[in-house]
Design a protein around this nucleic acid. Structure first.
Length: 415
RNA sequence: UGGGUCGUAGCUUAAUUGGUAAAGCACCGGAUUGUGGCUCCGGCAUAUGCAGGUUCAAGUCCUGUCGAUCCUCCCA
C-alpha cells in the first residue's frame, strides 16, 4: 500500500506553487508599504502558551490542538494560530522596551484537528499582522485598511467587511448577564446547540440559523447597544476612520470571535463564493493578551488571513497569478563533442543569469525539440559538430520558426 | 459534534433490469535518422479507494472502513 499524506493536508506542486509565490510576494510587498516587518516563530510552542493565550474554554484548545509530549516530557503543541506565538516572541525578546508600536507580519502554517472540507484543512496557512503597543483606533483602522487593500490588490470584489465591537472587561460581563437573563425564560425552547451555547457563549445564540431561535432572539439585547462609554466611543471613532478612507463595511453585531482574547474591535472579511468557510480574513483587538502571556500591560490588534481560502476565492473569480516562465533558450545537441560544448554553454548562460535549459534524458534531436516546445522555450539552438568548429550558431524562434545566425560569443546579448 | 452525497487508468468520463471494464486527453514510438507545434498511424495502462457480504455472476446491491465534498459546528 502506498503511503498517503495525512488527512487534511495538501501537497503544493508546481502547477499550484506559482500561485502561492504570487500571493506571498504581494503580501510581503504590501506589508512593507504599511510598515509591518516580518517575524517568524517556531512551528511548535509550549502547550501552556495556547491555554493561556487562546483560552482554555475555546473549541480550539479543548478539542482541536495537536498536542503531544516530546522525549523530554514537555507538553508541545503545533501552533493553531499565529497571534499568541507572536506575542510570546515579542515579550521574550524584550521588544516592548523598544519604540512602540511594534508592527509585525508573518506567514505561517497553523494546525487544527478539524474535519476537513473545502477551505478547511488540518494544516493550513495564514498571513497575519499584529500591532502591539497602542490602544488608538488608528491602529485598528490601519490593520483593517491593510486587509482591505490587500484583498483589493488580489482582485477580490465579492467580499464584505463586517465589523463589530465585542466590548471590554468592563461591559462584556455585564452584557452577557443581561443577555442570559433575557434568554433564560425561553431556555427550554432553544435548539440543542443553543442550549449548549447558553453558558459557554450566549452571544452565539443570536447567530443561530434555526427559525424558532431567531424568533426568540427578536428584541434580544445586543452587545453593540450595551457597550460602555469608552467602547462605544472607540467603535464610533473606528467607523470614522474607515469612512475617511472610503472603506465600506457592514456593522454586524453577530460577529463573535471564537478566541477568548478579543476585546472591542472584531472584524471579518466574508465571501459566499467559496462554500461554507466564508471567512477569508478575521481579526480584532486584544488588549489584555500580552499581559495574559506574561508581558507588560500593553494592547494589540491584528488579523489572520487564510491563504488557502484566498486562493480559492481568487481562482473562483478567475484571477491572474502571473504564470510561470519557460526557458529563454533551449540547447539541443547531437554527438559527443557537441554534448560537452553544450554543457559548458548551458553553464555559462546560467551563470550570466539566463534561463537556459537542456535535455538531461539524452533524447534524440526530435525528442529534444519536442521537449523544448513542451517547456515553452522562447528560442532553441542546435549544437552539432559544425557549430562546435565554426562557433556560429543558428537560433530558432519557437514562436514563428524564424532562424537567425549568431556567434556564440554574441549569444547572451541576442537573447 | 451531528447529517447528506460521491469514490472506475496519471486526468476527464463510459459501461442497459447485476452479464467480456471502454474511450478521449496525457505519455512513448513512427510517418519526417540536424529541428518542435498541426495531421495521420501505431504503442502504452499495476484502473472499479480498502475489507467483507449477497449472487451462477458485483463497477452496479448490502455492511463496515478510508478519502473527498456539502450542510451543521467552528474558524483562517
Amino acid at each position: 500500500m502506498a503511503i498517503k499524506a495525512p488527512k487534511g493536508t495538501k501537497d503544493v506542486l508546481p502547477s499550484e506553487s506559482y500561485k502561492w509565490q504570487y500571493i506571498e510576494s504581494k503580501w510581503a510587498e504590501i506589508c512593507a508599504e504599511y510598515g509591518f516587518k516580518e517575524m517568524r516563530s517556531p512551528t511548535f510552542e509550549a502547550t501552556e502558551l495556547f491555554n493561556r493565550g487562546v483560552g482554555d474554554t475555546t473549541d480550539i484548545v479543548q478539542k482541536e490542538m495537536y498536542t503531544f509530549n516530546d522525549l523530554g516530557g514537555r507538553s508541545i503543541t503545533l501552533k493553531p494560530e499565529g497571534t499568541s506565538p507572536a506575542v510570546r516572541a515579542f515579550i521574550e525578546n524584550n521588544q516592548y522596551a523598544e519604540t512602540q508600536p511594534t508592527k509585525y507580519y508573518y506567514n505561517t502554517s497553523c494546525f487544527r484537528y478539524e474535519k476537513p472540507q473545502a477551505g478547511r484543512l488540518r494544516e493550513f496557512h495564514q498571513f497575519g499582522i499584529e500591532n502591539f503597543g497602542t490602544s488608538s483606533m488608528l491602529a485598528d483602522a490601519e490593520v483593517i485598511a491593510l486587509g482591505n487593500d490587500f484583498l483589493n490588490r488580489m482582485g477580490i470584489e465579492d467580499i464584505e467587511l463586517h465589523i463589530s465591537s465585542v466590548g471590554c472587561r468592563k461591559c462584556r460581563p455585564v452584557y452577557r448577564q443581561t443577555l442570559q437573563d433575557f434568554l433564560r425564560p425561553h431556555y427550554d425552547c432553544l435548539c440543542e446547540t443553543c442550549k449548549s451555547r447558553f453558558e459557554k457563549n450566549p452571544m452565539r445564540i443570536l447567530d443561530c440559523k434555526s427559525k424558532e431561535d431567531r424568533e426568540l432572539c427578536k428584541g434580544a439585547p445586543m452587545m453593540l447597544d450595551h457597550l460602555c462609554d469608552e467602547c462605544r466611543d472607540d467603535f464610533e471613532t473606528l467607523k470614522k476612520h474607515l469612512d475617511a478612507m472610503g472603506i465600506k463595511y457592514i456593522v454586524d453585531p453577530t460577529i463573535v470571535r471564537g478566541l477568548d482574547y478579543y476585546t472591542k474591535t472584531a472584524f471579518e472579511f466574508i465571501t459566499t463564493k467559496i462554500g461554507a468557510q466564508g471567512t477569508v480574513c478575521g481579526g480584532g483587538r486584544y488588549d489584555h493578551l500580552i499581559e495574559e502571556i506574561g508581558g507588560p500591560d500593553m494592547p494589540g490588534v491584528g488579523f489572520g488571513l487564510g491563504k488557502e481560502r484566498l486562493l480559492l476565492l481568487m481562482e473562483a473569480s478567475g484571477q491572474d497569478f502571473g504564470g510561470t516562465k519557460g526557458p529563454q533558450l533551449f540547447i539541443s545537441w547531437i554527438g559527443d563533442n557537441a554534448r560537452e560544448y553544450s554543457v559548458k554553454l548551458l553553464y555559462d548562460l546560467r551563470r550570466a543569469g539566463i534561463r537556459a535549459e537542456m535535455d538531461t534524458k539524452e533524447r534524440n534531436l526530435k525528442g529534444q525539440m519536442k521537449y523544448a516546445n513542451k517547456l515553452g522555450a522562447a528560442y532553441t539552438v542546435v549544437i552539432g559538430d559544425d557549430e562546435v568548429s565554426s562557433g556560429e550558431l543558428t537560433l530558432k524562434n519557437m514562436e514563428n520558426s524564424e532562424q537567425t545566425k549568431v556567434r556564440r560569443e554574441d549569444l547572451i546579448d541576442v537573447i
